[in-house]
Design a protein around this nucleic acid. Structure first.
Lengths: 133, 133, 133, 133
DNA sequence: GTGGTCTAGACCACA
DNA sequence: GTGGTCTAGACCACG
């Protein structure tokens, strides 16, 4: 069971799945070209309707994270974004701002936030390196 | 501006507000007995319907985080379980991980991400300084 | 009735709608900032399920053509693509190739195709100019 | 390669093939009595399942466009209503309009579009020349 | 077996 | 009133 849905958070199940697949791809748990669980199978595992999984997969395909081939399955794509660098930085800034705001609310100062970012970067790099062995 | 709503995240505005008040309370940004902004004032600041703020306050009251005294306002109750620093870092790590994952998919490397975090920290600091004048 | 679905073509109703909205935007029939018909209303007009219209609108939003604001409606966005020029040319080449292949199948030579492209460009430009008066 | 399937368009491969055969017949690229490629050969060329080609041929036979003689092959029947040049241009205009609309949304101007059309025409011509060697 | 689409009907969050 | 999400169940195209 690579993925799991939490029905209590209030976050859409399909968005949870989207995030988890993206996370798995970034951490190396899923590799480029690898096949994802089928829609039907995953829906059963997650106790969710088929459409919900299909919606998540459709979203991931529109984001360019996976490629779905009707009749065959869904596959993780090479990461290769078509966005301009400025557009990419803008998208990323949204997530960064979320973290900065949360840090502020939690009374965690900038240096501690930067240290945390470094730690998480190292963590992901280590995980991805491990999976590449 | 202690609080802020993001309309694009998919998360309910009222739930965002609930979390932010809880964070502020847990981190000490708000203290026990302190008065919260009025519903109409906060609704205006956040560009949100008054019902939305009212719903968040109602939810917070039912959670025992605040106490609403009709005609006087809403007050923060004693927090008997303030978050420890490590618990707060764990919460923050969620947001940081989101940013790290997004950076990976956007093919933005760790150094550029760190630079962006510094930039956004500086931006928010400057904004806060301006608001304090 | 700006839009219309043809159930006999075999093309997905939701994709037909997507194309028609894009066409309307390109030809000036819809202007930036303008509100689109509501999901419910359009579904009724087109004799289609609400979900089908919603899916088309979701696709258009992910393409950056419209912006949907929950509780308010869907609005046509300014055209401002975040893609790199090479990515854009690649996307456009797909459509151009379709036309070139069709021309070949229909035994229409290159010069006639170029003439037709010029004519259609002029047609769209004239229509957009008309709507801007 | 008279025919070609696009897997990303959302249109059924078998319907694409049906249209292309009809176009070829209507435009004179295929003549009455001429034999069509065998099912297995065409399936291999188009990288498609044999069932798909068989289905297209069955559809064409039921439309009266071709005649299938078991053990011998499929033959084009007399076309009693060949498309006029203006009808063919009208069909082609659909594809051209798609390209023009896409160019608009991708903010690619008319001159660049015309240049791209010329380039793709040259590319296909070169490919065709190579195939004829 | 795979993914894609559509319908019908329900509930939620928001203005 | 708006859009968003989910379920249940059906059919299609494809391999």
């Amino acid at each position: 069971m690579l993925f799991h849905i939490d029905f209590k958070t209030g976050k859409s199940p399909y968005l949870q799945l989207v995030d988890q697949v993206r996370y798995a791809a970034a951490s190396g748990a899923l590799r480029a070209g690898e096949v994802l669980p089928s829609v039907r199978q995953l829906a059963e595992e997650l106790r969710v309707n088929r459409n919900t999984v299909a919606k998540a997969y459709a979203e991931l395909e529109s984001q360019g994270v996976i490629e779905s081939i009707p009749g065959k399955g869904c596959f993780l794509k090479e990461t290769d974004t078509p966005f301009t660098r400025s557009a990419r930085l803008k998208l990323l800034a949204k997530d960064v701002d979320d973290a900065v705001v949360t840090a502020h609310h939690l009374q965690i100062d900038g240096d501690a936030l930067l240290a945390l970012v470094k730690e998480r970067l190292a963590y992901f790099a280590a995980k991805a390196a491990l999976d590449n062995e």
